[in-house]
Design a protein around this nucleic acid. Structure first.
Lengths: 138, 138
DNA sequence: ATAATTGTTACACTAAGTATAACAATTAGA
DNA sequence: TCTAATTGTTATACTTAGTGTAACAATTAT
């Protein structure tokens, strides 16, 4: 799953959970948002480790929101699900030790891309699950 | 080639061309920046269509800069080489006609990602080949 | 004519993304 | 304590994207 797909899928799941007090299991969530239950469990188990959702194993178990929607930030979700470095911005080669102009250009782009990355993350810090819920209800 | 790899490779090639008055062929450029001559030709032929480089076929042909480095903007390079929509930000599913909350969330993220896209492109508009050349000479 | 070059297509290989299944560990409830 | 439902995790098969290279027609200087 790409970073952006994970992010939108997570938000779909969280929005669904926010509509329900009682825990929903991965199969219900999967059906609702149209993706496989296994995938849901893989995603939500990561969100569980960050306290964004609560997960209960066993009979009558399932997933529920771990925090109020106004306290869940997009950036937090993103960090919880994303192990790879961000939005797939990469330069061609690894940097050699010779410090050629190719290396310098690679470094230049790595810098540029991490600036972009920081801007994206800042943007996401300002977005809460609550604000998304409000927007999609319109 | 991913968008970001194409971009950094293009800049490497353009920097190399800026150091030379006479045209350089794809094989020389490829050797210098460490990628295959065919790939170079594929990239530079696109840059040629936008007037960023000049390309001459036949014996004693090759590639040379089509404009002064101060008039070549990163955004321009990016647009010339990139056929796909930008930095690989995508949401999971296509939007159905039922207008479900999943659809709304997809639309929400498509909007968010195109905002990001615009910010990235604006950032690139302010960067010229000249400014990159200055930075990497330091 | 010949040789060097671009522009373009094609192909094989590797890596990443997607969809699904399988199963141990856990837990509620009979 | 046994059973059924559930998570968490690993595995597998398949598809798509990315990478590296080759091939060859078209073009052009000598």
């Amino acid at each position: 799953m790409s970073a952006s797909t994970k992010l939108s899928t997570s938000v779909k799941a969280l929005c669904y959970l926010s509509e329900n007090d009682k825990p929903k299991n991965s199969s219900e969530i999967g059906k609702h948002i149209g993706i496989n239950a296994s995938k849901i469990r893989m995603l939500l188990s990561k969100l569980g480790k960050s306290g964004i959702v609560r997960s209960d194993s066993g009979m009558r178990g399932g997933f529920s929101l771990g925090k109020a929607p106004e306290n869940i930030h997009l950036q937090e979700i993103y960090c919880a699900i994303e192990d790879r470095k961000a939005f797939y911005l990469n330069v061609n080669n690894t940097i050699s030790k010779r410090n050629t102009s190719s290396d310098k250009i690679n470094l230049y782009f790595l810098d540029l891309f991490s600036e972009v990355q920081i801007e994206i993350e800042n943007k996401m810090t300002d977005i809460t699950l609550k604000s998304i819920l409000n927007k999609i209800k319109q």
